[in-house]
Design a binder for these strands. Structure first.
Length: 686
RNA sequence: GCCGACGUAGCUCAGCUGGUAGAGCAGCUGAUUCGUAAUCAGCAGGUCACGGGUUCGAAUCCCGUCGUCGGCUCCA
């Protein structure tokens, strides 16, 4: 497990993208400094091969560094050898990294001459570097770094000499939008990594190899947990029996936990009319993430009505046009005088038209159905279905809801990013006074789960809104945003939970907390979420009657401590490397018989039946393979416990126990072993 | 969605610069009766992702589509 450490970095990416002050840069660790210097050497090498290359940014990142370059030649991994050879030369020459401080004008002058991020003056200016200079605040020192002929605009810091770079390797080339904005052109991003010694570099790649063995896509296939089939569709995983078994266990866990915490379970359909998502406010903010709607045929009455409206609207449009033509011919002021009556009628028509249009839209909207991308609107309808009193609150609706999101094709990734998912969802409705207790209880639920699964490295991200994006990305309720964010921040502070605040990442309906964890592959994922919603209860006109006999709007929390089955199990596969604890193990016990004598088989089957009668997922391998072969196959499938049963065991009323990863534990009384197994499952032992 | 790479039997992979497919494992059949990580033999498995094109001839070269992967953007 120790090799997990290298991927863990508690700084969220988004914050790294912010401009670093010179003070922050000075805090660069030794390894970051080394990698940053290697990025300069990379640029030097690329320029030796392609002098026209234009460089943008070249920072150190979690496991290495990159440099963004604009170059007509498409750099491919086949070019790496050539580039690395140039880099080695540069390192061998052992140039010092010299820092030079220049005035803004000197910097601009060099940039215009194409001398920044270059080996010499060039015809084309260093366009990206010039832009960076523009963005350096007035008071700040502008510095250049030189190694050999290469001069770059750079705040540093660097290692002393290129020769200090002990070992490096280019890893991949990908594209990246300039400044991370989709609207900007794409640059080529060359990635590499560097270490002080060759051994550290080799160890790093060794660790990557180890990590690959845990990849949930690889293990998921080998262990027969899930499949993705092209005919079913991209991002639509199907669960094989072994995967479904894990799902069953997670649901059991969630249902027990939620029941004990006072939740009640509800069930809702997978689709809903467009009108529901108009009401919830999802359509303007979320439509891109939803599958396109299904259009149903109107029923004849509605169709007739719609056709009628269409005709009426057409007529009105013509009338208005005719009036407008007249008025523009005469000039409005005169028209108003002469045709006051007509003008009034025009206004009337306009109003009528608006009404008719909205009626027609409503009819159309009622014939359009969406696959649900979230469960909240359905749950809100359930809240509204029955008159609620303050005595009913908090009310906690839980459902393992099935949702469909139309994720962009490039986002799909094994089980971690899919288009169909089942969420450990619940919506909690409460009075403002109950908020703190409820919110805390949800956070505690996560922590309890994480302890159970042995998830030690995680980060709570508190996402808030960006006031400049009210009405676009976030509902336009400035005051309520402030209030709920303040409320949430206070709860977090007083509970003492560690968290980082991430601006501009809230849900459209309110601030949220995501719990981020790292897969062994080095990717970060939100696996759990806890979101405040002040917007939807208003939109759905949810109310409860308070003590003072006044209708009030409840506050809502959306929460999913176990996230979705897809992502959570993807995460668990990598977390456990497929070696699930007994309670989660898809196949908990496999009985391996030595030989196939009828008496022995009877004895073995009786034990199988006993296990199954206690809901233990048990199988028997009564094939004619040799015992070593049976063991090999069971071990490969990572079956948790094996009962090896031969004549000797049968005569002693025993089984020989073998546990995956632990080997042969010797013969034990079968009754005792079963009791042990049952208690391990019941207690969900690690 | 964007840029790039890749796509050969259920799985893991061979298949040179074009001459119309091969191994191991898994599967099936039979033999083997074996005490803690593979008993032996035989059989069967492929429209080389899909659709066009170049060519006497395409798994191999070109174009397009789909999918997967590495990133970017986005997210549970």
């Amino acid at each position: 497990m120790s090799f997990l450490v290298f991927v863990v970095n508690f700084t969220p990416n988004r914050m790294q993208e912010d401009r670093k002050t010179p003070e922050m840069r000075a805090q660069m660790t030794d390894i970051e400094r080394l990698r940053h210097s290697t990025a300069h050497v990379l640029a030097t090498a690329i320029l030796k091969i392609w002098p026209e290359a234009q460089f943008a940014a070249g920072p150190p990142v979690d496991n290495g560094f990159y440099y963004d370059v604009d170059l007509p030649h498409r750099i491919s991994p086949e070019d790496f050898e050539k580039i690395e050879a140039e880099m080695k030369k540069e390192i061998k020459e052992n140039h010092p990294f010299e820092r030079m401080e220049v005035s803004r004008d000197e910097a601009l002058d060099l940039g215009k001459k194409g001398r920044l991020a270059a080996l010499s003056d060039r015809e084309q200016p260093s366009k990206f570097k010039l832009e960076i200079i523009e963005n350096i605040p007035p008071g700040e020192t502008i510095s250049l770094y030189r190694n050999g002929d290469f001069i770059d605009l750079c705040a540093g810091p660097h290692v002393m000499r290129t020769g200090n770079i002990g070992a490096f390797k280019l890893t991949t080339v990908a594209s990246a939008y300039y400044k991370g904005d989709e609207k900007n052109p794409q640059l080529q991003r060359v990635y590499g990594t560097a270490f002080k010694t060759k051994k550290e570099l080799d160890d790093y790649f060794g660790m990557l190899e180890e990590a690959k063995k845990r990849d949930h896509r690889k293990l998921g296939k080998e262990l027969e947990i899930f499949v993705l089939d092209d005919d079913v569709g991209p991002g639509l995983p199907m669960w094989l029996p072994r995967g479904a078994a894990i799902i069953e266990e997670l649901e059991k866990l969630a249902k027990e936990t939620e029941f004990a915490a006072g939740y009640v379970r509800v069930r809702t359909p997978h689709i809903a009319r467009e009108s529901l998502y108009k009401k919830s406010g999802h359509l303007p903010y979320y439509a891109d993430s939803m599958f396109p709607p299904m259009e149903l045929k109107y029923d004849p009455a509605e169709e007739h009505q719609a056709a009628g409206l269409e005709a009426t609207i057409g007529k009105k449009m013509e009338q208005i046009k005719a009036f407008e033509n007249i008025f523009t011919g005469l000039g409005m002021e005169e028209a108003a005088k002469d045709h006051r009556e007509s003008l009034q009628r025009l206004e009337e028509n306009k109003r009528e038209l608006a009404t008719l249009n909205s009626k027609r839209n409503e009819i159309l909207s009622r014939s359009r159905y969406y696959l649900k991308a979230m469960n909240c609107p359905h749950h809100h309808k359930l809240f509204a279905a029955v008159p609620r009193s303050y005595r009913d609150l908090p009310l906690r609706f839980a459902e393992y809801g099935t949702c469909y999101r139309y994720e962009q094709s490039g986002e799909l990734f094994g089980l971690m990013r899919v288009r169909s998912m089942q969420m450990n969802d619940a919506h909690l409705y409460m009075t403002p006074e109950q908020f703190e207790t409820e919110f805390n209880a949800v956070n505690e639920m996560y922590l309890k789960y994480f302890k159970l699964f042995g998830i030690g490295k995680y980060l709570m991200r508190f996402s808030t809104h960006d006031p400049t994006k009210l009405g676009q990305k976030f509902v336009d309720e400035s005051e309520l945003w402030k209030q709920t964010e303040e409320m949430t921040r206070n709860v977090l502070k007083s509970s003492g939970i560690n968290y980082v605040e991430v601006p501009n990442e809230a849900a459209f309906y309110g601030p949220k907390i995501d719990v981020q964890a790292w897969s062994v592959i080095g990717r970060e994922f939100s696996i759990a979420t806890n979101q405040v919603d002040f917007a939807q209860p208003r939109r759905f006109d949810l109310r409860y009657k308070d003590r003072d006999n006044v209708d009030k709007i409840p506050l809502c929390i959306h929460r999913a401590p176990l996230g979705t089955h897809e992502r959570f199990i993807g995460f668990l596969i990598e977390h456990y490397a497929g070696n699930f604890p007994l309670w989660l193990s898809p196949e908990q016990v496999r009985i391996l018989t030595i030989g196939d004598e009828p008496q022995l088989l009877d004895y073995s089957r009786a034990i199988l039946d006993e296990l199954r009668s206690h809901q233990v997922r048990a199988e028997i391998d009564a094939s004619t393979d040799k015992i070593n072969g049976k063991i090999q196959r069971a071990e490969q499938m990572k079956v948790h416990t094996m009962f090896v049963i031969g004549k000797r065991d049968m005569e002693a009323n025993a089984v020989s126990v073998r546990v995956h990863g632990k080997g042969n534990l010797g013969a034990k009384s079968s009754d005792e072993v079963i009791v042990d197994i049952l208690s391990s499952i019941k207690e969900r032992r690690a």
